[in-house]
Structures are given as structure tokens and as C-alpha cells.
Design a protein around this nucleic acid. Sequence first.
DNA 1: TTAGGATATTGTATAAATTACACTAAAGAT
DNA 2: ATCTTTAGTGTAATTTATACAATATCCTAA
Lengths: 231, 231
Amino acid sequence: MELNDLPKLHSDFSVDCVVFGFDKGELRILLIERAEEPFKDFLALPGNLVYDNENIDQAANRVLSELTGLNDVYMEQLYTFGDVNRHPQGRVITVAYFSLIKVKKHTLNPLSAYAKKAQWFSVADLQPLAFDHQQILEKAYKRLQNKIRYQPIGFELLPEKFTLSQLQQLYEVILEKPIDKRNFRKKILSFGLLIELDEKQKNVSHRAAKLYKFNKTRYNNLKKMGFSFEL
Amino acid sequence: MELNDLPKLHSDFSVDCVVFGFDKGELRILLIERAEEPFKDFLALPGNLVYDNENIDQAANRVLSELTGLNDVYMEQLYTFGDVNRHPQGRVITVAYFSLIKVKKHTLNPLSAYAKKAQWFSVADLQPLAFDHQQILEKAYKRLQNKIRYQPIGFELLPEKFTLSQLQQLYEVILEKPIDKRNFRKKILSFGLLIELDEKQKNVSHRAAKLYKFNKTRYNNLKKMGFSFEL
DNA sequence: TTAGGATATTGTATAAATTACACTAAAGAT
DNA sequence: ATCTTTAGTGTAATTTATACAATATCCTAA
């Protein structure tokens, strides 16, 4: 059989965005409530079809912007899901993207009536999602757990200024295990990627902790030189 | 602007397979010489369009089988390439797959006249490839270098029975750096994933080395229990 | 038969990294 | 003033990583 004798088939092609945030001690994910069938009223990852004249990465940014109001968000490709029956209305292949953002730094403001609203939900307890979005989320969560062990991506999820305890709590939540405080601090500080600020926490009813910020310049330099940062 | 007002656009959708092998001390990749335009006579990754009634993983296996004669090859998804201009004849989004096989265990035997022939080429010195396949290969090679550091995938590329020196040479070729022999053996054997056979190399003009085989059962058990195998 | 060439095999001492573990300090609340 | 809560800090023991070289075995060729 010769391949070219077969009919040329077409699929719809979409992107879905898994956007993680961290707030009030919990890992969160950005979801929209669907306003239309299929899966009307279900929670879903922000996603939509890719135009023929845009690259996939661009499409991911455009779709996220339209559905949530988030702009200029760094996203990396996660995985492509293309099971024949993943969409009830026909073949739709979707490329999932993965992103980490500072919740407080962005406001949610969807342009599209397609989504009722975009909101943060705790990853820990979620109702069932539309389509195969549960599966996509699981893949993204595993990627996050894996990635945080060798790249200092935790800083993406925290405010510009943060305490070491906040950073540790983030790691504990993502990795789902307790971490020794002294060893964690020793290790994290040994990377030399934190700048200690002349500033302390405010409005806490206990000893205020020092604030730190992430040294992005130094990180980029070290990364270029092939350093890695295993926790 | 409402998304649903826009015309529904269609793209072609393909898979491409990056199949690595190891032979005569070199890392090799399976390529076909294209028999048709575009990129007639160029070397290319085995790849073709996905049918609407098959999952992407299935498509990768079918396409590889048709173009090279290789069947039942384990493949994992690598990355999706979808730049608007990656294909000169229109928008084609492609999912790249990644595979490691034992060269000697398979014979190449393409069914399709689409490819002149499928052959192994040394990764070290390659002429330019068709489309963006150079870029795909680079991504795959990086994935291989990364993966071999924490998963014992080297065994996939060697014959059933192999010597520790062969294994070390494979690691050195892939990682592009020399490795200390004693430390390498210590480390590899400490995983407990090798079975020492009562057998030695034959037909070598020097001291014959012991042969080992990979303990796949034990590997699967340990993997299930969450062990990792960092080199 | 023997000497030489090639690769296989093995251990140890040192340095570095990881782990386990508990008390004092600071700040606000009562 | 004292209580509560979280911040901040060091060391000893263990494990892991690294650097390094001599002997063993087998084949080849003189």
C-alpha cells in the first residue's frame, strides 16, 4: 500500500495551558468555567484552537491572554495529547503548555465570553475537569515536581521578595514531603542565587524573617556555563 | 472578538521518529532518503501524516514500520514542532518521537516506495537534513544525554549480552566525555541491575571480558518503588 | 616458546556532600 | 512580664564521589 493513495485527513488542533500559582500555602492552577457545550459548566484548562498563521507557542500565549487576561507569560511545551476520542465532537489534537506565575502580580480579566471566568483553584482538591484535562494536569504536576528538583523554578511562583520559610513551604507543598529546615537553608544558600535584602517581613505576629530576592542575572550566567542546581 | 466567529482552520498533522542505535562505537540514527519533493534526495527522519482514526502513538509505530520495517519498537513522545513555515508546502504540525533500539536485532526493510531506503547514519557527521529535522534531532540528542544520566537506558542500545567496557564506551560517546573505569564499574554494579553471565567475549585478540545482561525484572520492580539511578 | 601488545580487572585514601538532630532569638499578643 | 509563634543557627556521623596504578589474561608474532 502506498501512503499517498490514502485520503489526506485533517484534524483540529488546539493548545491548552497549565498555569500554576502559589497562594496561601497552596499550589493553585488557573481554570476557566466553560460557558458552552461540550462540558458546559465544567472547569477546564484555558485552551482553544490554533490559527494556521501562528506558531504554536504564539497560539498558547494568545489563547491564555484571551481567556484569562494574562499577558507575556513564559510558557514551555509540556506534551501533546491526541487520543482519537479525547474530544466528544471529533478529532482534536492538543499541545499542552506549562507555566509558573506569581499570583499577586497578575489580575485575571478574560476578554472572551467563551469562558465565564478564570479563577485560581487549589490543585489539592479539584472537581472533575472537562475533556482529558485531568490527565494533562497530572502530567504537568509531575513535570513540576521533577523540575523543581534540579532548577530553581520555585522563585517563579513566589513574590519578588520572600522569606526562606516561604520558599521551603513551597518546596514542601510541591514535593509533598517535609524538608529539614537547616539543611534546606544550607543547600539553597549554597547556590548563591539569593540576594539577602535589608528588609524584614511586616505585620506578622512573631519574629519577622529576613526577605530575599532571586538573583536572576547570576542564575542565567551560571546556567549558560552549564551549572545545575540539584536540591 | 469572539473566538467562535473565526473560520475554523485545519492543519496537516504528522509524526517523525528519531530512532537511535549504537554500532561500531558510534551513536547512529535511522534516516530515510526522500524519493519525492520537497527535499527530494535529502536525508530525513522517518515520518508521515497521522490518520484521523488512530492515536498519535499508534501513528508513530505505523509510520516507522512502513518506512523502515521496524515493528513493536518502544517510542516515547519527544516534542511537537509546529512553526508556520517548517514545511514548504503548507502548515504541518509534527509530533516527534524518540526511540532506542538494538541495531543488530532488527533488519531494515521499508514497505513504502516513499522512501528509497532506510539506513543507519553516524550522528557525529551528518549532511543537512530535510525540513527542520536537524532541529528535531538536536532536541532528541539532548533528551538522550539527559535521560541516560538518571535512567539505565543504555541497555536498550546494546546487544542482550555486553561487556562493561562496551557499556562504558556507550556512555562516553553519548555524554561526550571520558569516564573513569573503576568508578564507572563501581557505580553501575551498585545499582544491582546487571546479571553477570558465565560467559566471555569470543574472537577478541586480547583478554576476553565477562559478559553481562540487564536485569529488566529487577529494574521494573525498583522503578515501581520509586528508585532512581543517577550516574 | 616466549615477548610484546592489548584490554580486563581490582582497591584505597581523600574530599565532598548528605543527613540527623535541638536549642536560642526575636517580635507581637495577652 | 510572660506566653506564643516562627526565625535562625552548627556539628558530628554517614554516605557518596573522586583521583589514581598495578596486575591478570589472552592473543599475536617473532
